[in-house]
């Protein structure tokens, strides 16, 4: 048996040349579509995700309508060409359904649903290229799309993964390559400003002693991502505002 490949080299670099606490490059864009109320595109390393938000709008089925909140409908799908092996179908399998539900949970934690009785918000995310950290990229894209749609949220919800390299060192933002080699992956969706955790998931077991430091690393990652998204949102709003001449602002 060959020796298990090390996730961190002796000088502390990872397989793609990052250090343990470095995120992959994030590029994002808001308002990519004109048809939905809000849309966003995000790239985290090679993981590419599109998100579109429709609503709040009238609930289509009468039974589901809630008199005090709005319902949030999420759909996660992965393009058939997004992974190494061509997928049979883009959505509907167990993994997609699970990710849809997790996404819904993360969004329910931030959207001020009580403001929109009898309404519904649809969030569609599509993975164009999956290269590790699919769920975090989807959460971040959905957050941006919701902000673009002008839907009130308490704060950003960001997600990030972290892992444990060489059984000791916490590593941020795990890529697909590192996922495959092994090492437990901890996925965290959090509200970076208040430090609340809305979702936490582990792919494998590791010793409880390691959990606090890996979790801290992941939360740090969420904060960093929030700063990047915030910058992008501000730039987008500034561009939009200056091209409309701030016509809708009175003060």
């Amino acid at each position: 048996m060959s020796r298990k490949k090390e996730l961190l080299s002796r000088v502390g670099l990872r397989l793609d040349g990052r250090r343990a606490d470095e995120l992959r490059r994030i590029r994002c864009k808001l308002g990519v579509f004109t048809q939905p109320d809000g849309s966003a595109y995000i790239e985290q390393g090679l993981t590419k995700v599109l998100a579109a938000v429709y609503g709040p709008h009238q609930v289509r089925s009468k039974q589901k309508a809630q008199h005090d909140t709005c319902i949030i409908n999420t759909q996660f799908s992965m393009a058939v060409f997004s992974t190494n092996e061509r997928k049979k179908r883009p959505r509907g399998d167990r993994k997609s359904t699970e990710l849809s539900m997790h996404l819904q949970q993360a969004l329910l934690a931030v959207i001020k649903t009580e403001l929109y009785p009898w309404s519904q918000i649809d969030v569609y995310v599509e993975v164009l290229h999956g290269d590790g950290g699919i769920y975090p990229a989807c959460v971040n894209a959905a957050t941006l799309a919701i902000i673009d749609a002008g839907i009130p949220i308490k704060e950003y919800v960001c997600a990030c993964t972290a892992s444990l390299g060489n059984n000791d060192i916490p590593m941020l933002d795990v890529s697909h390559q590192e996922e495959v080699i092994g090492g437990p992956t901890l996925t965290v969706a959090a509200l970076p400003m208040s430090g609340k955790i809305v979702l936490m998931e582990m792919s494998q077991r590791f010793h409880l002693d390691h959990l606090p430091k890996v979790l801290d690393k992941a939360l740090e990652g969420c904060k960093d991502i929030k700063a990047i998204l915030d910058e992008a949102v501000k730039n987008h709003v500034r561009e939009m505002g200056s091209s409309t001449g701030w016509a809708n602002t009175t003060s």
């Binding site: 509200l191 561009e239 939009m240 505002g241 200056s242 091209s243």
Partner: peptide, 16 residues
């Protein structure tokens, strides 16, 4: 690039 019409700038607030 989007067309900027004014030099006016405002403080932009983001959620949270």
């Amino acid at each position: 690039r989007p067309l900027a019409t004014t030099e006016k700038s405002y403080k932009i607030f983001t959620p949270g």
